[in-house]
Design a binder for these strands. Structure first.
Lengths: 303, 303
DNA sequence: CATACTCTCTGACCTTAGTCAGGTAATTGC
DNA sequence: GCAATTACCTGACTAAGGTCAGAGAGTATG
């Protein structure tokens, strides 16, 4: 069976099975829109209606109507914000919290109903396969985007990168004394900066220097701890290689610190070979390079 | 993470990801209800509206309306049944077939969009994990039911069982000369007959004889070729063991033919040990028995 | 032949999930 | 202080999905 065919079968089976049960278990209690809102408000503290709306990406009028319905049923309290009385805040009442627990229980019941007919071994296999699917679907929802290194998300990544190295390297890490004093080197036409986003949040980055008359160079490859294991670093790496090749480079190189074992391992398994130091980066212990194939750039189209 | 928690995460992630894309890719073309109907009608031959409706489990008025919409767009032709002019039949026009191909393509595009951001290795892992999830969710939707051996579904299974053995055994198989001339032996109180159903279709069966003063005996264990690999035989077996134990038996036994290797393997791995022949079943080469634990019956409740 | 039953269709109705265009009150910027 | 902006609300509207109660045509049965 082809991969596309397998994915289609999966979509059909899972959509039907989970969908039907979803309706049966969760649908009874409360319309989906209200349930979603109730869930998003959460059981602690008050929230701006504005931000809840942004998170769910719903129309303001629609949310207003949903809130009226929840308010009518005594599940939430909507009050003006003390500082800015245009803004409204919303919090759950006790009844609201109870309702949310109920949704929770139904969600558990749904999960249990999937597991129940299986024996212990099958259940183990089901849950680990589910974890795998979930992980890979999450990975496939990550988008890569070229951003200016001054963009807030880029700055966020670079800062996180520095903070992490600070803790990881013996003797700490000071970006200013590293060989990339000027982020402008990662701005076209001298280079570029790639940011990976998951659900809008930046979760990784990688920079590419494209010096004239010298091989392209990869800098600042970072993946947020929460997004590791998704193959994101490898994806950033190969995206940069592709762009370097498109720019005319036939070699790409990089340096790394011995503390970054996972990175070193990634470079080796991605076809990089260790070479003598090609710069005097104070934080580097290993230098790598990779010859880019001149052939047509590999593209991951559908099979 | 607990298993229930993992299943919930899966439901959330997959429902969102697949759901959103589903809407984006498939939603554009045609309302979901119409698309479903179009799909169910299929691209060949004519179908009773009645049976299509039964398969989708929809209201008669609703289907009628959907058909009017499809008819208006020139996708289907609805005609009275030649034999019974109350019944209407429906078939796709060329335009209908084209529309169906379009839905197909969109479904492919959806699948491709999930695979596209992944590299080859990740794609392999995703599709095999999806196959596993699909398989196990299918398994979990199979229901077991005690039926009278004369019930049409039971008869269907017994006939399929006989046909299969006929082809498999050297020298064929004649149920009349096998040691179960009378299906009444599988009817309470002398025994029982279990049928497994998937989406209403019978896909497996197993009979239990409960002779007074002798160990319980399992007969006619069969799983349809299309439903193999779901752990169904094991489930039927352990369900019968449980019922035998509940009936007071502390030993259950069975015989089998050497051609049924998978079955023999199942029995061994389920705790059966080979014993000398305890009957003179002409088709048997191996005889097994299993001592049932006196303890509380294992139940697969949610973790 | 009358009656009951079957299958389909229609009209009336409902809920959910949204969208869109103002309108109002509060706040910010000048 | 006044205009623009922001956050929210309301009313009007749409489309989809679906339910229910007959009506009508056709068929089976006594």
């Amino acid at each position: 069976m082809g991969q596309v065919e397998q994915v289609r079968r999966f979509n059909r089976t899972v959509a039907e099975r989970v969908g039907v049960l979803h309706d049966r278990y969760l649908g009874g209690a409360r319309p989906y829109g209200q349930a979603r809102l109730l869930w998003e408000i959460g059981d602690e503290g008050t929230h701006d209606v504005r931000s809840v709306r942004a998170r769910l990406d719903l129309d303001s009028g629609y949310v207003s109507r949903l809130l009226r319905a929840l308010e009518r049923d005594g599940l939430v309290v909507v009050e003006p914000h003390p500082d800015d009385r245009r803004v409204r805040t919303v919090r759950l009442t006790d009844a609201g919290r109870a309702e949310r627990v109920l949704l929770d229980d139904r969600s558990d019941a749904l999960a249990a109903s999937l597991l129940d007919p299986l024996d212990a071994r099958q259940r183990d296999r089901l849950t680990s396969a589910m974890a795998e699917v979930e992980r890979l679907l999450t990975a496939s929802v990550v988008s890569l985007e070229v951003l200016d290194p001054d963009h807030p998300d880029a700055v966020y990544c670079l800062r996180a990168y520095a903070t992490e190295l600070q803790e990881l390297f013996e003797g700490g890490f000071d970006p200013a004394s590293s060989l990339l004093p000027d982020p402008a080197e990662l701005r076209p036409p001298r280079g570029l900066f790639l940011v990976a986003r998951l659900h809008g949040e930046p979760v990784g980055c990688a920079g590419l220097k494209l010096p004239t008359g010298a091989p392209a160079e990869i800098k600042r490859l970072w993946v947020s701890p929460g997004a590791r294991g998704l193959g994101l670093a490898r994806r950033l790496l190969s995206e940069l290689e592709e762009r370097a090749a498109r720019d005319g480079s036939d070699v790409v190189r990089l340096d790394t610190n011995k503390a970054l074992e996972a990175a070193t391992c990634l470079y080796r398994s991605s076809g990089y070979t260790e070479v003598p130091a090609f710069n005097d980066e104070p934080y580097a212990h290993h230098w790598f390079e990779k010859r880019l194939t001149a052939g047509p750039t590999q593209h991951h189209g559908a099979a």
